[in-house]
């Protein structure tokens, strides 16, 4: 069902836990809303959805959502989610992580999740910085940008999360931004419906740290900055960062292969 009204969104929120911990102007709330809209559009029941978060501003998302919520350890959200999904393949499991969470400390789990192809939806809140810990360098920070640990300008090249996911073998890979809410909720819906490991990189904004250290902390300007940096019409990886769906090719999914294995061995009884 397509939802529009505040009351319709509230159904999926733990309203007594609001306001969120996020700063005014933070882009994360837009992702939260797009996620709810995607879940509602798929008519998923709240009881059959698990939202697993890592550690970071982004990792707090599960607390505000009225699903089965799991807030894990820094970098390990995908590993926890793997355990949940393997024993409960009937549940829809979404994993929300920051960029540091998913591709710095959790990088190993991330590439292996792409390779293994368990039916999880990884949603990466990429704000190009460590928000929770006060604005340090992330593996996604662009060259030259200032953070509390690169105050003279970053000299490290960043990861392109989309290319990383493509290279590691994820079957569904997409990028959206908090500037384009409609597109983002559409992508999230497709990712959730995808049977296999799906990666959605969401470019989001951290006015409090990234904005402040890089001479523009106006949330509105930062949103527009995302628009200027990205190009929804571009299919190739050219000058601007392309957004959209880059791969949508289902391949044999792990829990399904595992189920077939159990069946073949005649072990269907337990579980």
């Amino acid at each position: 069902m397509l939802i529009h009204t505040a009351a319709e969104y509230d159904r999926y929120l733990r309203t007594q836990k609001l306001p969120t911990v996020w700063c005014p102007g933070c882009g994360n709330g837009i992702i939260l809303k797009a996620f709810i809209r995607a879940v509602a559009a798929l008519n998923l029941s709240q009881d059959e959805v698990v939202v697993v978060g890592g550690i970071g501003c982004s990792g707090r998302t599960p607390f505000f959502l009225d699903f089965n919520s799991v807030h894990t350890t820094h970098g390990r959200a995908l590993a926890f989610a793997t355990g949940i999904k393997l024993v409960r393949p009937e549940l829809t499991v979404a994993v929300v992580m920051g960029d540091g969470d998913s591709v710095a400390i959790g990088g190993n789990h991330f590439i292996h999740a792409c390779r293994r192809n368990i039916d999880l939806t990884a949603i990466i809140f990429n704000n190009m910085i460590y928000g929770q810990t006060g604005g340090q360098l992330a593996p996604t920070t662009l060259p030259g940008r200032r953070t509390t640990t690169s105050m003279w300008g970053n000299i490290e090249p960043p990861f392109d999360i989309v290319r990383l996911a493509l290279g590691a073998g994820a079957g569904f890979v997409a990028r959206g931004t908090v500037f384009d809410f409609e597109q983002l909720s559409e992508i999230l819906g497709q990712a959730l419906a995808f049977k296999g490991f799906a990666v959605v990189e969401v470019l989001t904004t951290c006015p409090t740290y990234f904005g402040r250290y890089n001479s523009n902390d106006d949330p509105y300007d930062m949103l527009h900055g995302l628009k200027d940096r990205t190009d929804p019409n571009e299919a190739t990886m050219a000058e601007k960062l392309p957004v959209g769906i880059f791969r949508n090719e289902p391949r044999p999914e792990y829990t399904e292969l595992y189920r077939q294995l159990v069946e073949k061995l005649g072990g269907g009884g337990q579980r």
Binding site: R76, F80, T82, G83, I84, L86, Y258, G267, G268, G269
Partner: peptide
Amino acid sequence: RRGGVFLQAEDEIASISAVIGAAWG
């Protein structure tokens, strides 16, 4: 063959994390 789940994880951090996730499942 007993209907249980076995996973060879990418490291021990993933192993214990998956174990905890599975327990919650």
